[in-house]
Design a binder for these strands. Structure first.
Lengths: 131, 131
DNA sequence: CGGCATCCGTGCCGATACTG
DNA sequence: CAGTATCGGCACGGATGCCG
């Protein structure tokens, strides 16, 4: 590595803004991407099915999200040449490996949501009486 | 359709917009939060140290991010009453359990960044010649 | 059905200035 | 050093309309 940023610290990783990992993290840690990947586990879903399952997503955002996931090779898009059109989405093998990680994030959140809610309440309470 | 949403499907989870899990996911899957949690692994860092390590973060965003992480009980903030002020941040036990998951996300991204880059290039290439 | 193009509001975030 | 406060731009994303 020519421009040696800090790979001195073994605990450290490249945190530069133009870093590949940072850019990819921003993409997949996106609000809708997370949900799509979580929902596509071992399933093939149509556009409308996904839209219905993800409460609050607009058509535009679902399209945009699916496009970038497809571009990143995480989701496979299959168009059936019928009328009316039928488009199905599923995880690629690469996407499937990511799913495990995403799922652990979801599981962690489910497991600790009460702790977080409690922490928030306690925090807000301290704030309130501090004022 | 009544209020009992689909817990019929074992693969499924609550995807309603007002769902706790969704809200928490949005918070912790935030661009800066991920980085902060990743960086605070087994370390106590001062505000300025964090700021220096995270390329591109503004003072404002780092403050805002740290506040919500503190509020969620993931990060502990310690103020040393000295001049100049010395404020240190570290993961709480709860934050430490989250770190493992975040780290696996980072590791996955590092491991697969070339595949993703290749997928993107291939996708863009197909797009280009399709036009 | 599954898009894409356009318009446009708003909320996020950077820049700047000020405080303990 | 480690913040808070305020302002303003702009990009994100919702709404709408049209198409294969």
């Amino acid at each position: 590595m020519s421009t040696d940023y800090g790979d001195a610290d073994p605990f450290q990783w490249d945190t530069r803004e133009d870093c590949q990992v940072r850019q990819i993290l921003d993409r997949i840690a996106d609000k809708w991407s997370l949900l799509v990947i979580a929902l596509l586990d071992n399933r093939r879903l149509r556009f409308t099915e996904l839209r219905r399952e993800i409460d609050g997503v607009s058509q535009r955002m679902l399209t945009v999200t699916l496009r970038s996931l497809e571009r990143d090779g995480l989701v496979k898009r299959t168009v059936h040449p019928v009328v009316p059109p039928r488009v199905e989405y599923e995880l690629t093998p690469l996407g499937a490996t990511l799913h495990a990680t995403i799922q652990s994030l979801v599981t962690w959140t489910e497991a600790h949501q009460e702790e977080i809610a409690a922490a928030r309440e306690s925090y807000d309470h301290r704030e309130a009486e501090a004022v």
